[in-house]
């Protein structure tokens, strides 16, 4: 199932425009026998990838491990050069006008650190200020804005090594935004964060995107991030773009299962449920699974009520993680 990028009207260039990009990596593998010789294998990381992103969008970029998400981000940020295809970001080719390009973008690689381990966070920030040549006034204003939004105030003088993971991630994000980039790449920014930190981070991203119009491309495995933040989502698998559109529509397509959990006041036998319902037991609770497209909820409820007096009843859709897992399975990822 190949998906064409959403076509735009007229001839105007999109802010980010990727056309027919192919990227190959050579992987050396050890042979099963003999340590001296290695086999070379070429991995086709991105296959004819095309996509468009407009200024001010907040786009979720998902796909299983090894799908090519990080590779895309690295190409868009000018670190890697694709073997084939064209890429422009704001009219610039990232890997050709590298210095000019990276001045305008911010990147957060969730599992790496750009801040210096041994020194207070604000010293790392000062270095970033000098690297990006942010004027002092603008820097102070921006730093104040970011430290407030990310609740970093007290941490600035703490060496990074004394910060918790969540504090570190907030500091990393702050560091990537000090030069007020027009485009922000977030590569798994919520990895390893607790619930409070996650929610705070999402609020902040929404604010940054809404207030400043920063274009954000968010790569994550946390589906909550995507549903909470972005209306548009792109799904990548085996280096191909498999879906590009509204998160809502994507979920609707795979949202084909409801589970009613019901517990009775006395032991009962369930019978006469509509065709297509599946029943499982978990202790005293019956789990009745049905498809909302095939069976009306009323019919199921009617049968459940007739079986005996109900002590407790909940009906839930599948979690987003389940939906995505099924989607990956069906797309054969």
């Amino acid at each position: 199932m190949a998906v064409q990028p959403q076509k735009r009207q007229g001839f105007a260039l999109s802010y980010i425009e990727v056309r027919g990009v192919n990227k190959f990596f050579t992987v050396r593998k050890k042979r099963s026998r003999g340590a001296l010789f290695r086999e070379k294998e070429t991995v086709h990381a991105l296959k004819d990838l095309s996509l468009d992103i407009e200024q001010g969008e907040l786009v979720g970029y998902i796909g299983p491990n090894g799908a090519g998400k990080s590779t895309t981000v690295k190409i868009l940020s000018g670190i890697l050069t694709p073997e084939e295809g064209t890429v422009t970001v704001g009219g610039r080719v990232p890997w050709i006008s590298r210095k000019n390009h990276v001045r305008r973008i911010g990147v957060v690689f969730g599992q790496r650190s750009q801040l210096w381990w041994d020194v207070p966070i604000q010293d790392s920030f000062s270095l970033l200020r000098d690297i990006y040549r942010v004027p002092d006034g603008a820097y102070q204003k921006r730093l104040g804005e970011l430290t407030e939004a990310l609740q970093l105030g007290d941490l600035l003088r703490t060496p990074l090594r004394l910060c918790s993971l969540g504090q570190r991630m907030r500091a990393e994000l702050c560091g990537s935004l000090l030069h007020s980039p027009e485009l922000l790449f977030l590569d798994e920014p919520t990895i390893g964060l607790d619930a409070v930190s996650k929610l705070a981070l999402r609020d902040f991203l929404r604010w940054e995107n809404g207030q400043r119009g920063t274009t954000i491309l968010l790569t994550t495995h946390d589906m909550e991030d995507i549903t909470a933040l972005s209306s548009r989502v792109m799904v990548l698998g085996h280096g191909r773009l498999l879906y590009d559109g509204a998160m809502r529509d994507l979920l609707a397509r795979y949202d084909t299962q409801r589970t009613a959990a019901v517990r009775y006041e006395a032991p009962v036998e369930l019978s006469g449920l509509p065709a297509g319902c599946q029943v499982a037991r978990q202790g005293e609770t019956f789990l009745v699974t049905y498809s909302p497209q095939a069976v009306a909820a009323g019919e199921v409820l009617e049968r459940l009520r007739l079986a005996g007096p109900i002590a407790e009843l909940t009906i839930q859709p599948q979690s987003v993680d389940h939906l995505i897992a099924r989607m990956y399975r069906e797309m054969e990822l």
Binding site: K74, S77, G78, I79, K99, N100, V102, R103, I105, V107, F109, R112, S113, Q114, I131, Y132
Partner: peptide, 9 residues
Amino acid sequence: AYDLCRPVH
């Protein structure tokens, strides 16, 4: 990777 996306020589 971080150093590579800095606007420096």
